[in-house]
Nucleic acid binder design. Structure first.
Length: 461
RNA sequence: UCCCCGAUAGCUCAGCGGUAGAGCGGGCGGCUGUUAACCGCUAGGUCGUAGGUUCGAAUCCUACUCGGGGAGCCA
């Protein structure tokens, strides 16, 4: 008999069919006359109840099962007389595939703290929360591709190893094959020519600059891959290794980019609401009882758009007491961003046109000479979920900005070349994938929305 | 990296100067179409590590390690 996934079992039109179920025991409830098993196979949040009567030849096997055991069950699908489930399986035979010693198996049939579960990252996918997270994460990833594919964006794979060490988005991990206990040196200086690439190499902090290359040929492109930041960041919103989505759009100015960002977030949240109903209800019940309302609000609302200068004015006249003062020219603090998106406007806010001195060199300079065409999308609880800009496409202006920022013109000659040979206005942004999953699910800590989190002093599994 | 908080049984925590407790989980027994099942019994801990104060430290002090919350950096 062919195995059925539990998700498909519950989608059956009617009971009465023979089924083969394989999965893991969540709990067992036994009495003298009957044993109930809750089985999960990860295809859905819902457990399947297996009923094993006393006179069943495999009742002793069923009664001996403990949490975590893997089993194979053949039986008949029947309508459940009990509360809590539509169908259950009247067992014909229960086969134990793999034991799970209850003395040592760390998962119990009760809630565990996320901190504890992180220590057993090899077993936490079996929990309700982490299973739901994995399915939603998968769904968001799928929606990212469909969004761009439907718009004829080309999926570009940008390199993970890069020799550029000044991409301007934070500290980088160095990649080397040199023996750190015996580093080759020449007059005290490291002989980088002996290293694998013949010069210092690093893990990428962004695929943007390379994506721009392809946008200047294929018009609309996006990347979606791992990104690395060696910042000593210890917060619930930062990882040393995370995934980022970076569309890059030719013949597009900042207005078009904000529209793309808004459509994008609406598509992702709408897709999850439509396709992860059960899992989202779970998150709404156990993690954040506002998350479904928030997502529905996003689908039905227009994002607010304000300039940095307007934001500063708004904050200064808010009457709100902030720990940090609000001054034009300094970056908005987390508390300021949260006030804007959570209290003042209560929906996603797109802040544009930041002072040039607090933004990256590649952002297009406005005619005022003071601000750049930057854009941050702020959402409740997470803060910045998207950062992007219209790129500086004028070579002379870009060169001045690079000089100011201390960026080598030689090393980025290829980037400058794009402005010499058929330059066009173009724009792009980066969306933090884990922050998006966090936002969608309402899970408080970013370490619980990625299978194996990498953070300072922590790279287990 | 900075500020604050924490680390006691497998898990979640109480104890806060006189030498270790609860609930859940585990084991054993009972019972019921049960569903975070229920009832009874039972086992289980060099109180994060290293120093110090004290007649005596889980408890007070110091350092370190790890974890959490917040900040910065950002996605």
């Amino acid at each position: 008999m062919q195995r059925s996934k539990i998700k498909d079992i519950f989608a059956q039109e009617q009971a009465g069919v023979d089924v083969l179920i394989q999965g893991w025991v969540k709990t067992r409830r036994s009495s003298k006359s009957v044993t109930f098993l809750q089985i999960t196979d990860g295809s859905t949040l819902q457990d399947l109840q297996i009923v094993v009567d006393e006179n069943n030849s495999t009742h002793d096997v069923a009664a001996s099962l403990t949490t975590g055991c893997s089993v194979s069950v053949e039986g008949v699908l029947v309508e459940s007389p009990g509360q809590g489930q539509k169908y259950e399986v009247q067992a014909g035979s229960v086969t134990l595939l793999g034991v799970s010693d209850p003395e040592t198996y760390p998962l119990q049939k009760k809630r565990h703290s996320p901190e504890f579960l992180r220590e057993i990252a090899h077993l936490r996918p079996r929990t309700n929360t982490f299973g739901a997270m994995a399915r939603v994460r998968n769904s968001v990833a799928y929606a990212i591709h469909t969004f761009f594919q439907e718009r004829d964006f080309q999926f570009i794979q940008t390199p993970i190893i890069t020799a550029s060490d000044a991409e301007g988005a934070g500290s980088m991990f160095q990649v080397t094959t040199l023996d750190l206990n015996d580093i080759p040196k020449d007059a005290g200086a490291v002989k980088h020519e002996d290293d694998f690439f013949g010069k210092p190499a690093f893990l990428t902090v962004s695929g943007q600059l390379e994506a721009e290359i392809f946008a200047m040929a294929l018009s609309d492109v996006y990347t979606f891959g791992p990104t690395f930041r060696a910042e000593n960041s210890n917060t619930s919103r930062h990882l040393a290794e995370f995934w980022m989505v970076e569309p890059e759009v030719a013949f597009c100015q900042l207005d078009g980019l904000t529209e793309l960002a808004e459509d994008f977030l609406k598509h992702l949240t709408g897709h999850v609401l439509d396709n992860c109903v059960e899992d989202m209800e779970f998150f709404n019940k156990w993690h954040d009882d506002t998350t479904i309302d928030t997502l529905e609000g996003i689908a039905n609302s227009q994002f607010e758009r304000i300039t940095y200068t307007e934001a500063v004015t708004l904050l200064q006249s808010s009457g709100e007491k902030f720990d940090y003062p609000v001054n034009w020219g300094t970056d908005l603090q987390s508390e300021h961003e949260r006030y804007l998106t959570e209290k003042k406007i209560q929906k996603p806010v797109i802040v544009t046109d930041y002072p040039k001195d607090i933004k990256a060199f590649y952002m297009r300079l406005n005619d005022d000479g003071e601000t750049v065409r930057a854009m941050d999308v702020l959402v409740p609880r997470i803060g910045e979920i998207i950062g992007g800009s219209q790129r500086e496409e004028r070579r002379d202006v870009l060169e001045i900005r690079m000089t100011e920022a201390g960026i080598s013109h030689d090393e980025y000659s290829w980037y400058l070349d794009l402005r010499s040979y058929g330059t066009v206005p173009h724009s792009g942004f980066g969306l933090g994938f884990e922050r998006t999953v966090q936002f969608v699910t309402g899970v408080a800590n970013i370490r619980d929305v990625i299978p194996f989190p990498r953070t300072p002093k922590s790279a287990e599994f």
